[in-house]
């Protein structure tokens, strides 16, 4: 089983978390064009990389941000979603 160390919670099984997709800056709703919106929703470079992702801890209902490598599945950093990234995993 895979474990991840989170602030406050300590070492938790990854199976307690639900993946919430990539973290991306949403374009401004007022000024966004249809093309920009389609790009934001659908089109991206899906090649292996280190990316920031939403992860939901079901038992406590807390959203976290993980910095994870999609090639090796290694989680580099973890923090509360509302704080940004500071802690090492």
């Amino acid at each position: 089983m895979k474990f991840v160390t989170c602030p406050s919670l300590g070492k938790r099984a990854l199976s307690e978390f639900t993946y919430g997709g990539r973290y991306e800056q949403e374009p401004a709703q007022e000024t966004v064009s249809e093309k920009e919106w389609a790009d934001y929703v659908f089109y991206h470079n899906g090649a292996p990389k280190v990316q920031i992702e939403w992860w939901y801890h079901r038992p406590t209902g807390i959203w976290f941000l993980f910095e994870r490598d999609t090639l090796t599945d290694r989680i580099n950093k973890v923090d509360f979603a509302r704080k940004g990234m500071t802690h090492e995993a």
Binding site: D39, F42, Y43, H44, N45, G46, A47, P48, T70
Partner: peptide
């Protein structure tokens, strides 16, 4: 596929 489309800078909705 994403590794190939990256060579041509083509963006797709594909996730692996």
């Amino acid at each position: 596929t994403p590794r190939i489309t990256e060579m041509l800078d083509i963006k797709t909705p594909i996730e692996i």
